[in-house]
Every structure is written in C-alpha cells, then in structure tokens.
C-alpha cells in the first residue's frame, strides 16, 4: 500500500517540477515528465511481477500450451510500452507522432496475435463435423 503513496508523491513532485521549468525551458520540462513516468513505472514493476506470476500459475494449472499464454503477456507488454510513449509524445504537443506510435503498436499486437488466430481457426475446423 505504501507503494501507492510513494508513486503519488513522485508523480506530484514531477508535475510541479514540469510546471516550474516549462515557461523558461519547455524541452527540459518534457524530459522531466519522461523521467518521472519512468520512475513511477519502476515502482510498479514489483506489483506487475505478481500479475505475471498469476499468468504462470494459470499456465501450470490448465496446461494450456504455454506459448499462447506467453503471447498474451507479450501483447500486454507491447500495449503498455506503446501507450507510454504515445502519451509522452502527446504530452509534449505533437499528437500526430503519438497517433503514429499507437498505430505501430496496434499493428505489432496484431502480428503477435496471428498464431492465436490460426490455432483458433484450426480448433474450429477440427470441431466441425
């Protein structure tokens, strides 16, 4: 629980620092925003490890073939990184670049999901009489 308070503290201090520096040096303000969000993420990492542990537990219990579950975890990771960088770009004002990053992230996720789709189709075909 104290992780949450630490995260909120760091986030507030980052916002204040960004607002202080913005009028004189907007580029450094943007870099402070990036640094702040990276620090908040590094706090969150150990929370995320429990979530990934849940995925492994599910994999072990349902002996679903683990490469599909690995793909799920990968897709979550790609989604997170894409959203992180597109928010940073739209924060500093250039929303065009942000939307391009989102598009690239969606396409990467789609490419990652292709094996899942093919195995689904094979499953359906095998069920059909």
């Amino acid at each position: 629980m104290d992780e949450l308070f630490k995260i909120i503290g760091v986030a507030l201090i980052t916002t204040v620092a960004v607002l202080v520096i913005k009028p004189s040096k907007p580029e450094i303000a943007m870099l402070i925003g990036v640094a702040g969000s990276i620090i908040v993420f590094l706090f969150i990492v150990n929370l995320l490890e429990d979530v990934i542990g849940l995925f492994d537990y599910i994999m072990a219990k349902t002996n679903l073939d683990s490469d599909i579950m690995m793909l799920l975890v990968k897709i979550v990771g790609v989604g997170y990184i894409t959203e992180f960088s597109s928010n940073i770009c739209s924060d500093s004002g250039n929303t065009a670049v942000a939307s391009k990053i989102l598009l690239a992230g969606k396409l990467t996720i789609f490419v990652l999901a292709i094996p899942i789709i093919t195995s689904l189709v094979e499953l359906i075909v095998s069920i059909m009489p």
């Binding site: 201090i13 620092a17 520096i21 640094a35």
Partner: peptide, 18 residues
C-alpha cells in the same frame, strides 16, 4: 531511484535558464 533524479534534472534546468 526516486525523487532525487527529478529534482536533479529540475535544478539543471533552472541553472541553465539563469
């Protein structure tokens, strides 16, 4: 890894501006 990096970058920014 915490607040000190943010404050360090902020001080550098203020220093440069001055």
């Amino acid at each position: 890894m915490g607040v000190e990096i943010i404050l360090k970058i902020a001080t550098i920014g203020i220093l440069i501006a001055v």
